[in-house]
């Protein structure tokens, strides 16, 4: 059910924009009916890729968040806390500092995210590969890459490079065209399908290692594979949209509140909810005020209070977190 939600929200978001369009006009653009060329371009070349990108980024970040929270048996982690988003961000910041054009940032972002995850794995693995040391390694790696981004901002030319870095760090999908959406879909699609296919299995990763192992799983290997999958999704999303925070943390909680903790239902719910939420927030980001707000700012503004709401709800129902 929740997997269909982004389709509905996405359709609504196509009408939603600075230029008001009638439902008939949007429909005509989608199915190739009678319509002025400039209106058709607005729908097909501006709004549609934007909606698809927001949906893919939201789905990827939320699915990755659900995977990370299960794998690390910790409801407070996401791709940002584990250092993967900051890794991707420093890849981009360094590239901009080195003078790379803004169109060529997906590669460095992806490489930065993977480097961060690799460092987390190596560091955590060297300390025994347990859950807690992996989270702590993530915190260390996060701090390192955040500082790296800070240095590049400090060194960057304040008139040209710095605004570009800042802009990218705040996250947005507004200027996305099909040329960027297609590679994103090719990167996220298979990873999302893998996450859906293996979704029940993530339950076993929430068990203590000896238990998981007595059920025939090799916990360390499974944990690294699942870390790899979450990293792939996060890095792919961040490479297109910049750093969009909170989605990976809050959406899995909201999904858990709706369908319960069983990953067989949680993963699809997080995927659908994440996509729908980001399409909606992106629509708000470019229509709420006379100028366009960065998407990462909107998710922060909405995500924080939403998280508090979820915690309060849990507090009332179950007496809070253990």
């Amino acid at each position: 059910m929740l997997l269909l939600l982004p389709l509905v929200v996405g359709l609504v978001a196509l009408f939603w924009g600075r230029k008001a369009l009638a439902p008939g006009q949007v429909w005509a653009a989608l199915v190739g009916g009678e319509l002025a060329d400039n209106l058709r371009a607005v729908v097909l070349r501006v709004r549609l890729p934007r909606v698809v990108a927001a949906g893919l980024v939201g789905a990827s970040l939320a699915t990755a968040g659900a995977i990370f929270q299960g794998t690390f048996r910790n409801p407070l982690v996401d791709g940002r806390i584990l250092g993967i988003s900051p890794g991707a961000a420093s890849g981009v910041a360094l590239s901009l500092l080195a003078g790379l054009p803004e169109g060529a940032l997906a590669g460095p972002a992806f490489a930065g995210g993977l480097t961060a995850a690799l460092l987390v794995s190596l560091l955590g693995g060297a300390l025994g590969g347990g859950v807690l040391v992996l989270v702590l390694s993530g915190v260390v790696v996060n701090s390192f890459f955040t500082s790296l981004v800070g240095i590049t901002k400090y060194l960057a030319d304040p008139h040209e490079i710095l605004p570009a870095i800042t802009h990218w760090l705040l996250g947005e999908v507004g200027r996305v065209r099909w040329a960027q959406v297609v590679p994103l879909a090719m990167a996220c699609g298979p990873a999302l399908l893998l996450a859906l296919a293996f979704r029940w299995r993530f339950n076993l990763l929430t068990l203590a290692d000896p238990e998981a192992s007595s059920l025939g799983l090799s916990p360390r290997r499974a944990r690294f594979l699942s870390l790899a999958l979450g990293t792939w999704l996060t890095a792919a999303a961040v490479s297109l949209s910049g750093v969009v925070g909170w989605v990976g943390l809050v959406v899995p909680h909201a999904a858990r509140a709706l369908v319960g903790p069983d990953h067989a239902r949680l993963i699809p719910a997080a995927l659908g909810l994440g996509a729908a939420a980001l399409i909606l927030l992106d629509a708000l980001a470019h229509t709420l005020l006379p100028f366009e707000l960065p998407l990462g700012v909107v998710t922060g503004l909405v995500g924080g209070p939403a998280f508090v709401g979820l915690l309060l709800r849990r507090w009332r129902r179950e007496g809070g977190w253990r």
Partner: peptide, 13 residues
């Protein structure tokens, strides 16, 4: 193997 303590981080049924 039946552990002494099983502390799931999430409220599975």
């Amino acid at each position: 193997y039946v552990p002494q303590l099983h502390e799931p981080p999430f409220a599975y049924t």
